[in-house]
Design a protein around this nucleic acid. Structure first.
Length: 323
DNA sequence: AACTCCATCAACCGCGCTGTT
DNA sequence: AAACAGCGCGGTTGATGGAGT
């Protein structure tokens, strides 16, 4: 007696999302907030299962997501955190502002794994302290424990810094990856919410139009006077002169027009309702050592009780040539 | 130019956890 | 306490585009 499927397979659409679907989803979340995914397909008419909707939102449409090239800094962080936490991508993602766990996971599998393998031998063996060998010396429960400590630490930091929310210190804690966004009843908030999401939609529209001009004409009529030559991941606001005239695009058409795009730009994620969802932007400002110290702090605390537990958390000498 | 191989990444699948009834 | 529903996570797959032959 197996678990019933999360959604009946009949009539459920699979495969890549179209801009129309994205817009429907974003519009819905704008009005109702993320959550209650079960009800999203029925309430929006999307022929997608709830999981697909959630995934699409969290990995792609959610405001504040950075896509594209990973910086050296981010690479180091990933390698480091992977060694520390193992393949707990969600936990790793909580330390990397604006990156999704899926993105990090993909990047690890396609780039970093190879890079490390190259450095540490063709057999794919990693040195002590670097994953995947870490799993042999450090159990899953131990890594979980570490993350729990992080969480506790975060809670403590939160509690202690409630009155210092405006300070300039980097937020050296795992960002909250939950999306405690309440349904907005404030029209002003709604508009800002929307604007923050349209950056993502604009980006995907660009890549979509580049990659599949045929489908863009069959399902909708999208015109643009701009050259959409931005590579995916190169964040840009909706381009001037861009219009989306498909049914369903109408509701957000204002945001793709030139005048409103300026407005949209004002709605930085920090100003939006979705700011809760946005990971703190610390990748640019926070020196790695700062964060490392914080990480090691945890490690050191645990090491007191277990010497081999936190064996080699710093990047090995070999890794210095990695980046 | 045509074909094959490979790399990348968005999306899917299945399982486990947690909250609710 | 048990059953159920919903969500989150990690592993895997498949479509796509680019590089190589």
């Amino acid at each position: 007696m197996g678990r019933p499927p999360c959604c009946d397979k009949v009539g459920v659409k699979k495969g890549p999302w179209t801009p129309e679907e994205d817009i429907v989803l974003v519009t819905y979340i704008q009005n109702h907030g993320p959550g209650n995914w079960r009800g999203v397909p029925s309430n929006t008419g999307l022929l997608r299962c709830s999981k697909s909707c959630r995934l699409r939102w969290t990995n792609y449409l959610r405001p504040g997501i950075k896509r594209g090239d990973f910086s050296d800094h981010e690479e180091k962080m990933i390698v480091h955190l992977q060694a520390l936490l193992g393949n707990r991508w969600a936990a790793i993602a909580s330390y990397l502002p604006e990156r999704t766990d899926n993105d990090i996971k993909n990047y690890w599998n396609t780039h970093l794994k190879k890079k490390l393998r190259k450095l540490h031998g063709q057999d794919g063996h990693f040195p002590e302290g670097l994953s995947p060998s870490q799993s042999t010396s450090k159990g899953q429960w131990e890594r979980r424990l570490q993350t729990d400590i992080h969480t506790a630490k975060q809670a403590l930091c939160d509690a202690l810094s409630l009155n210092k929310s405006t300070n300039n210190l980097p937020d050296l804690k795992p960002s909250n990856v939950n999306y405690p966004v309440c349904p907005s009843t404030d029209p002003a908030q709604s508009s800002t919410t929307y604007a923050s999401s349209t950056d993502n939609i604009a980006r995907l529209l660009q890549s979509w139009m580049k990659s599949s001009p045929k489908s863009s004409q069959t399902s909708s009529e999208i015109t643009t006077q701009n050259s959409f030559n931005n590579p995916m991941g190169n964040l840009s606001s909706p381009s001037e002169g861009t219009t989306a005239t498909a049914e369903g695009f109408d509701s957000i058409n204002f945001c793709f027009s030139s005048s409103n795009c300026e407005e949209a730009r004002k709605f930085t994620p920090e100003n939006t309702l979705f700011q809760h969802e946005r990971k703190p932007n610390l990748d640019n400002q926070v020196p790695l050592t700062f964060l490392e110290n914080w990480l090691f702090d945890d490690g050191a605390a645990q090491e007191e009780g277990d010497d081999h537990l936190m064996m080699d958390l710093s990047l090995g000498e070999d890794d210095h040539g990695l980046f």
